[in-house]
Design a protein around this nucleic acid. Structure first.
Lengths: 150, 150
DNA sequence: TATTGTTATACTCTATAACTATA
DNA sequence: TATAGTTATAGAGTATAACAATA
């Protein structure tokens, strides 16, 4: 130790402490890690793939366009993501009989099972947060985040 | 309108509503947009560059290693990011006289001015959130997020 | 041997434009 | 002329391994 500065002292983050974007980005590190441990690594799903499985399960026959708009994913990227889900046998695209431009999305039975299994796994994984948040705090946090997301 | 389904109805997100990761990811869309509008686009800064300017200003002579650990940025990427900040004249690297492997980071006067200006711009931009959150709610939100980030 | 930082490289992710087929 | 979706392509971001210098 040659310096007078304590090299093990935590870095001063005070300038960033009052920006909401920084607080959200740092919390996202934790939740991304929980996702990877509980869902991403064991089931081979990325966050956007997990999210799409849940949304398609709850909204059978929805179109790619609507998913793009909700998740702010550009259409070409959505095509590639859905291609991969389809290749793995979790998803089918059905052409709309009345508007033959549009595709309706549905999960296969295997896709439905994966959607259910992966959601349960994420909920298990996120229960680790009970060590730092009461269930009331957690509910409150989700309500406040929903207001920010509008 | 050929279908019986109401195509303008919002998608059902109920399966995701109780996962914290989804709530955080959706709130991050809002804060990323506020950052881009107020700071990123007008000042030509990416979030990680903005964050590094603030941290180096508050922690003069810190090392790259410590910033990598805090922000979970791999060392090779940190080298490239700092290269760009240095090229733009906002940063200098000084070799440690006692441990000649380590580099200490300092902002130039121009870098200091940019750090201050960009933080003020972000705070202005985030004030738009006052339309959806009271200042008490916002404080509470930041406290809860800090608990999650640990 | 271990650590700080760099170089080289490959891989993924993202964004855009151009295209098709339908309307 | 506009819309849903695809293809092609380029750019940015990210991860890993190998390396140089120093401890």
């Amino acid at each position: 130790m040659s310096s007078t500065r304590d090299k093990s002292a935590p870095l001063d983050q005070s300038r960033l402490a009052h920006t909401l974007g920084y607080a959200i980005a740092r919390a996202a590190v934790t939740t991304n890690q929980l996702f990877a441990q509980g869902v991403g690594d064991p089931l081979g799903l990325r966050p956007v793939e997990f999210t799409l499985l849940q949304l398609i399960l709850s909204n059978p026959a929805t179109t790619q366009k609507r998913l793009c708009d909700l998740l702010r994913v550009p259409a070409p990227q959505m095509t590639l993501i859905l291609d991969r889900l389809q290749e793995r046998g979790w998803l089918v695209r059905e052409r709309d009989a009345n508007d033959r431009r549009a595709l309706h999305l549905r999960l296969t039975p295997a896709g439905t099972r994966l959607a259910e299994k992966s959601l349960a796994a994420l909920q298990d994984s996120e229960q680790a947060l009970e060590q730092v948040l009461t269930s009331g705090e957690r509910l409150l946090l989700q309500e406040l985040l929903a207001k920010v997301a509008r």
